[in-house]
Simulated assay, not measured.
Amino acid sequence: METSTLVLIVTAAVLFIALVVTAWVMSRRTRRAKEELAAAQQEHSSEESALTARHAGEKRELQQQHDSSLAELAVRNDSQAQQRLAEHETEITRLQAERDAAVKAGTESQQLAGQGMRWELASRELLVDACTAAGLDAIIATNIVFSPHDDEATAPYCVQLDHLVITEKAVVLVDSKNWKGLIFDGKKPSSMAGALSILFDETALPTSYAISLKRDSAGSVSVRSKLEHESPAFQVRRQARRFHGHLAARHGSAPYLQTCVFYSHPDARVWTDGLDEGERGRATRIASARTIQKALIDVQTNGSTAPTSHQLTQLVATVRELGADLHGTGRFASEFASPVPLTFRVPARAARTTATAPTATQDGPRMATRRRAVA
């Protein structure tokens, strides 16, 4: 055999053997890699299972903690809610007690304030209604009590004024008379019916007088006569002089005070000329519930000296200091609002302990119906 052929055969054999060895080596490496991959996959699966189990355990633990926290919060919230509900109910009870006490105190305060002007409540209401209906910007001061300076008096004394109607054009002192029945003020009875002259000596009547005829509960007619210095017109002029002197002594000047006798009872029928000339030209207007609006309008333009703004400011401050009840109309309505409602009436003695709201009594009728009609 030739050497080249032999070399070729040997070379081929070596290459074959090398190929076989290489294939065997590669096969073992492949098998080993597969085994390692399988082992790795098994280990990964084991780790994944362990992680899943651990995650599930942690999730259960967290859920348990969450549920426990929720239960604890629910118990705490229920406890706080019950506590706050109890505190709320306690606060409501306290506020209700305060409200009831305030309502009671307010009612008692109204009764005390109203008691001071018991007889002037109905006439105050009528005056406010009249000023409102007339469109007057007015301040109605009720129940003014002062001690005048009187050199002739042997002891100090007090004077009570029923009402002052204060506007920028006039100050009117109103003396309210709660008389009912037929009233002759400055007008002779015979001028109404000639037959009445048989009952009265009209020749003896002075310049100022008032005669009242009223039927009593027994059906008989009673007669009341107020003559000269006892007449309502003379009395209101005397009150005006005293109050004017009080204001002048206090402030150095005082506004001119016009006067009015107001028969405020709704059952009063007044026979009058509407004016009592009085002494020294100091005329006094005579009005009833039906004519008081006209009287208040007339005094605004009767030619008397209007008060100055300074005098009005001093006057309002003075009557406030004297404890008067102030109620405004027109543009003064918001500034001067009385704490005692216009419809308030002092309850009867037996009802004062149980009354929860102002009620009308025999002291005078409410004027709510009339007020609605005016509005």
Rank of each mutant, 00 (worst) to 15 (best):
A195F: 07
A141S: 10
S309A: 13
V145M: 02
L127V: 04
A333L: 05
R54K: 14
D129Q: 15
H88I: 13
A218E: 09
R331N: 13
T5Q: 04
T167Q: 01
L275R: 13
Q311D: 09
A40T: 12
V75L: 05
P156L: 10
V75D: 10
T5A: 10
S49I: 04
T167D: 06
F262K: 03
L127S: 05
G219Q: 06
K187C: 13
R29Y: 05
A295W: 00
L164F: 03
A50G: 04
T343I: 04
G252R: 06
K187E: 11
A39R: 12
R331T: 15
R29T: 09
I166Y: 00
E202C: 08
A97S: 14
D273V: 14
S288T: 13
A337M: 02
T90I: 00
R371C: 09
E36K: 13
R84K: 06
E202R: 03
A97E: 15
H88A: 15
S69R: 12
Q160T: 15
V261T: 11
G364T: 15
V270N: 02
A240S: 05
R76V: 03
L95H: 07
R290K: 15
E36C: 05
P339K: 00
I292V: 15
T313D: 14
S304C: 07
Q41K: 14
L182K: 05
E108N: 13
A50H: 04
L173D: 06
Q83W: 01
